[in-house]
Deep mutational scan, measured.
Amino acid sequence: WVPTKREEKYGVAFYNYDARGADELSLQIGDTVHILETYEGWYRGYTLRKKSKKGIFPASYIHLKE
């Protein structure tokens, strides 16, 4: 896992994603996520609506905010 280059990196989910394991994070369309790390097509972070739950999710489900 590699920390993100920018201190504040955010994105928005444009697909729903159902977590398949305890380390994964479920997403709903429109969720804003804070991205902490990246690795081979995956991000690690949390949604702003539930900051206490961190997990991994596919990068392809996220539109990055500039």
Rank of each mutant, 00 (worst) to 15 (best):
D23M: 07
G21Y: 07
W42R: 00
K65D: 11
T38M: 11
P58T: 04
E66T: 14
K5M: 10
K65Q: 12
E24C: 06
E40A: 13
I62G: 01
T32A: 11
R44N: 04
A19I: 03
V2T: 11
L48W: 07
K53E: 10
E40Y: 06
Y61M: 13
H63T: 10
L64G: 01
I35E: 00
L64N: 01
P3H: 03
Q28I: 12
K65M: 15
G30K: 01
S26I: 04
L64W: 03
T47G: 03
G55W: 02
T47V: 15
H63K: 14
H34V: 15
F14Y: 11
G55A: 02
A19S: 06
K51W: 10
Q28R: 15
K53C: 08
G41W: 05
T32K: 12
K50W: 10
T38F: 11
H34Y: 15
K9I: 10
A22H: 09
R49S: 13
F14W: 14
K50D: 15
K9A: 12
H63W: 12
G30I: 03
T32L: 15
L48I: 11
T4A: 15
Y17I: 02
Y17W: 08
A59Y: 03
G21P: 01
W1D: 07
A59H: 05
D18Y: 11
Q28H: 11
K50V: 11
T4D: 06
K51C: 15
T38C: 10
L36S: 05
D31M: 06
D18E: 14
K65E: 11
E7P: 10
W1T: 08
L36D: 06
T38Y: 13
T47E: 08
K51T: 10
K54C: 14
G21T: 14
Q28K: 14
E7W: 14
Y39F: 14
V2F: 09
L25V: 07
R49L: 09
Y46T: 05
T32R: 13
A13L: 02
A59W: 04
T38V: 13
Y61W: 04
V33P: 00
G45V: 04
K5L: 10
T32D: 06
I56A: 08
E37R: 03
L27D: 00
E7D: 12
K50A: 13
L36E: 08
R44G: 04
S60N: 09
A59F: 03
V33S: 00
A22T: 10
K9G: 05
T32P: 07
S60H: 11
L48C: 15
G21F: 08
P58R: 04
E40K: 12
Y61S: 10
S26W: 04
E8S: 11
K65G: 09
R20F: 05
P58I: 12
S26F: 04
W1I: 07
R6T: 12
F14D: 06
